[in-house]
Design a protein around this nucleic acid. Structure first.
Lengths: 219, 219
DNA sequence: CCAAATTTGTTGTAAAAACAACACTATTTT
DNA sequence: AAAATAGTGTTGTTTTTACAACAAATTTGG
């Protein structure tokens, strides 16, 4: 079966064997599509008929306002699904765009088939729903974390809020973050150069230390 | 049955009759509790054993960092559930606190019973799960909206992003928002007085007009 | 209906952030 | 290995925000 290895590696279909996968591909009226770097996968305003499962590569979700300002809202990696929450919330149009950040392979899943499980209510569907609940919940928690950091008033407090959380998760003052500096700035929605200045200050004051993506939160 | 009217009015149990409700109360090991204004319903760090359904009154979710700064993350009204996403995401402890903003009645639901449906897999449980998926998805969409506004760089852009969205939903340049000025400022995570100044400027410039919770977005 | 509490608008000042421009380093690509 | 691209740190300037303090308006509760 085409791309079974990629499907096997996703959270949503990972539980299933090849036969089950094939059946679900049919059930969700799926189709594959590849995108080159910087190509638009979804445009904000598009009708939400299908959700997008990233199978290879990665993509970023961004919002462009009427003045042309771009906000990066999320990063999607292999196994992540775009549009899932919107679909289950009954949204009719996409509010944000999805752009391939490298050459990527995606699988489209029909929204209606996803929301209204097929007649032959099978073990498969039950598992998919269960996985979807978990995925949405996890993604919700991630968003809340991000909001918690962003709610802080200064760049320093935003950084510290984020670092503290990663430190807790790592259970060590030494930890690695999944962002480079530019990405970290856009994650926290602050100016990159201002953040860079703040990081330097904090290092000078002995609060943190860092190298590349490795950080250390002192005391 | 006690408080059936309130249960009937919630999204999670609204579909059910009194008999079904009674059965589910047993199944989810529920218990009622009332809180006075400003009483702590959940403290951040508490073990997440139960989720909280608000039946009467309202509450706010807030986060206090190590420096004592308070960020308001969410407002819960009748029918809203606190901790649902965290529970399904497998979180073990509450990350934020829940404070009653007026005299309130809440219903606790056992986390494990919620996540692992009881043996007698019945129509009731199916409905509850379906409602929960929708609730989590809707709450996720709300959070994304908030994130979109907060990602804007200036207070003015944050306000405009929010107003535009409400205007779209209302399908009219005249609309009402669910916040007073103080609440709006904390929703957007900006200083209230700075926001007040900005609102005045925008009114002077003829971009918006407002009175109490009524707003008008001109052009 | 009055007193108390809360909300709102305004001002000036201090602090912080965005912005722009640039040099330097690291990473990819060919 | 060279060239092109992407990422990083620094600086000075301008803009925006937070903060504090207060009076006026509004809402709430007895």
């Amino acid at each position: 079966m085409e791309h079974f290895n990629e499907l096997k590696a996703t959270k949503i279909f990972g539980f299933a064997g090849e036969f089950d996968c094939q059946a679900m591909m049919f059930c969700f009226k799926t189709r594959f599509k590849t995108f080159e770097k910087n190509q638009v996968i979804v445009s904000q305003g598009d009708r939400l008929e299908e959700v997008v499962l990233v199978l290879k590569g990665s993509a970023i979700a961004q919002n462009i306002d009427s003045l042309g300002n771009i906000s990066i809202l999320n990063e999607l990696n292999k196994g992540d699904v775009y549009g899932l929450e919107a679909a289950y919330a009954g949204q009719e149009f996409y509010k944000d765009s999805l752009i391939a950040s490298e050459k990527s392979l995606v699988l489209y899943l029909n929204k209606h088939r996803l929301i209204n499980p097929c007649q032959n209510r099978c073990r498969r569907h039950e598992m998919v729903i269960k996985n979807i609940v978990t995925m949405i919940a996890e993604s919700h928690v991630k968003l809340l974390d991000k909001l918690t950091h962003m709610s802080k008033k200064t760049i320093r407090d935003k950084l510290l809020s984020y670092f503290h959380m990663v430190k807790e998760q790592a259970n060590s003052p030494y930890f690695e973050i999944p962002f480079n500096k530019t990405e970290l700035a856009s994650y926290l929605a602050v100016d990159r150069s201002a953040m860079s200045t703040e990081l330097s200050k904090m290092r000078d004051e002995g609060i943190i230390d860092y190298d590349k993506k490795q950080y250390r939160l002192i005391k």
